[in-house]
Nucleic acid binder design. Sequence first.
DNA 1: ACCTGAACACCGTTCAAGT
DNA 2: ACCTGAACACCGTTCAAGT
Lengths: 206, 206
Amino acid sequence: VLAAALAIADEAGLEQLSFRRLASRLGVTPMALYRHVEDKDALLEGIGDLALARLELTAPTGDWREQPRATARSFRALALAHPAAVRLFVSRPLFTPAAQRTADAVLGLLRRAGFPPERAVLHYRQLVRFLLALAVLEAERRDAVADPRGAGRAALSPLLAEQLPYLAEAAPYLAPGEDAEAAFEAGLDFLIAGFERLLAVGAARS
Amino acid sequence: VLAAALAIADEAGLEQLSFRRLASRLGVTPMALYRHVEDKDALLEGIGDLALARLELTAPTGDWREQPRATARSFRALALAHPAAVRLFVSRPLFTPAAQRTADAVLGLLRRAGFPPERAVLHYRQLVRFLLALAVLEAERRDAVADPRGAGRAALSPLLAEQLPYLAEAAPYLAPGEDAEAAFEAGLDFLIAGFERLLAVGAARS
DNA sequence: ACCTGAACACCGTTCAAGT
DNA sequence: ACCTGAACACCGTTCAAGT
């Protein structure tokens, strides 16, 4: 039911997903879909939930640092498999069963790391947002590679180069498609190190 | 021209912005807009650029840490003034004049902080993404307060509470509308501290 | 140069009607 | 219970025509 919708969204893009298109793919009339889903809104929520349900959550391991890492990598894999879902996650807060399950897992991970409940919630939000940000960055980068405009982007006119020296200097490094995985891991290192620091501060306080 | 479009998007939401609606607001026929803007795509790019042009960039100051902070706060203010623009920023990479000006300013800030050009680009991406993430977090939170569903959200059924203990434990703290500014500042501290650490590591290496 | 009217190919959604 | 057809109020966009 929803699987077909997710497939369309991932293949053709989220904005190409319509009741009419989905219906024709299922060999049915558009109005028949209203039997299975209340709304377009509910449809989007449904495919968001479906995608998130496919997130692989790892069992607790010895080193607490490894668990956020593993979760982050799972999330990245999910984002690559279902690019449309990422856009859904940023545009609408989900509170479906899959979202609750994921939230519980991530909160548990932070609690076991040593954060008290209130701080765990705070860092949960930061962690989730940061993961989304990293995922969006990758999705955008992928688009930039496919985008024909991308080629001329780094090239600034001499006049602009004078007015925007830092941008001109950075241009060579701004070319897309460098090494998405390395960038992701670097962002992850940054995040984990930050949490370690916060844990140390918290421990010093108590 | 574009100002009216931005106003509609901020007032009624991005998805309510249409050529027909914009035209009626301007007291003109929808097709007349094609004289001033090539496309709906160009229209969206235009209002994104317009919003970003309103970002206040501060002059370089003594303490390098203060500049990313000031920029971040400007960006937050922009996000609050033009909520529609935030959604545009995450969904489409901008390379308009205002975007170039902003990129140059942020890159310059990182260069002056001590990062070499290649690393500055890397951290520029992280910084921009993080700021967007914080801004989206706030926009979502604002929506959550307005959303009537939000009231029942934190309340889990007893059965679920047993299966999702960490979520149940966190529920009291998940209520929205706490203290957006404090959360923003905490995220900012996290980010700046991370950059300081990276600078220290870089200095140790060289 | 700038605007208009009619038209085309799409949307989500409702509602009465079919089996 | 599930599906259909016709209809409504919207979209972006094109194209020939007006001043």
